[in-house]
């Protein structure tokens, strides 16, 4: 555990809590992509199956359970409790265009051809693209509430900090996880355009982020 890894995890947790509280308090999931949240729930489910097979640490177990619970709680707020506020018209990204290539790639490029490893690989690849329905939705509607952009900022910062964590671990431990690193770089690239808009429009301006 190093400072980049820990702060990355904290940012990840903060992002998920921001989104959950935003929906809970406003009793609305307007502007939120239910598809992205479903994909994240699928990411956590397929990655954390090792909860049943391996014990790493109390920290590791607790965080995995918290992420799983919050992911499914968020999905249920969007699709059940506050379903009426869900903008399915704007959430029109075709997730099969992500799921099919990601599933195919995880069978082709993995560390070992076992169910748990393939599912872990699938979750890593899927996470790198899971935010695309949300970014697509913002592009389509042309705006995002500032609280939604704070969520995206922390979610993007989390994987960016993991990149620093992997550089650190490579130097300190000789640890290099090719699948996670390459996917993490791809994932971070997707946020670059958003980061730019976040700093130039949300933090310097006020209220909503509107696209040109």
């Amino acid at each position: 555990m190093n400072i980049f890894r820990l702060s990355g995890d904290v940012c990840h947790l903060v992002a998920i809590i921001i989104l959950f509280l935003k929906i809970w308090r406003s009793k609305s999931c307007a502007g939120i992509s239910g598809k992205s949240q479903l994909l994240f729930a699928l990411v956590f489910t397929t990655r954390y199956l090792d909860l049943f097979t391996a014990f790493i640490s109390i920290y590791n177990t607790v965080m995995k359970v918290v992420f799983l619970v919050l992911a499914y709680a968020t999905v249920s707020l969007i699709y059940f409790r506050f379903r009426k506020s869900y903008d399915s018209e704007s959430d029109s990204f075709r997730v099969e265009f992500l799921l099919v290539p990601v599933a195919g790639l995880s069978f082709l490029e993995n560390y070992s051809f076992t169910p748990l490893e393939i599912l872990w690989t699938f979750s890593i690849y899927l996470e790198s693209v899971a935010i695309l329905p949300q970014l697509f939705m913002i592009t389509k509607t042309g705006e995002a509430e500032s609280i939604t952009t704070h969520y995206l900022f922390f979610l993007g910062l989390y994987r960016t900090l993991y990149l620093a964590n992997w550089v650190w671990r490579y130097h300190e431990e000789g640890f290099f996880d090719q699948i996670a690193v390459v996917s993490g770089v791809v994932q971070t690239i997707f946020y670059c355009d958003f980061f730019y808009l976040y700093f130039t429009r949300v933090l310097r301006g006020s209220g909503k982020m509107t696209l040109p």
């Binding site: 890894r5 992420f67 560390y111 964590n165 996880d177 996670a180």
Partner: peptide, 10 residues
């Protein structure tokens, strides 16, 4: 191996 080590990350 890498396949085992990566499990400590979230």
């Amino acid at each position: 191996s890498t396949a085992e080590n990566h499990k400590d990350e979230l």
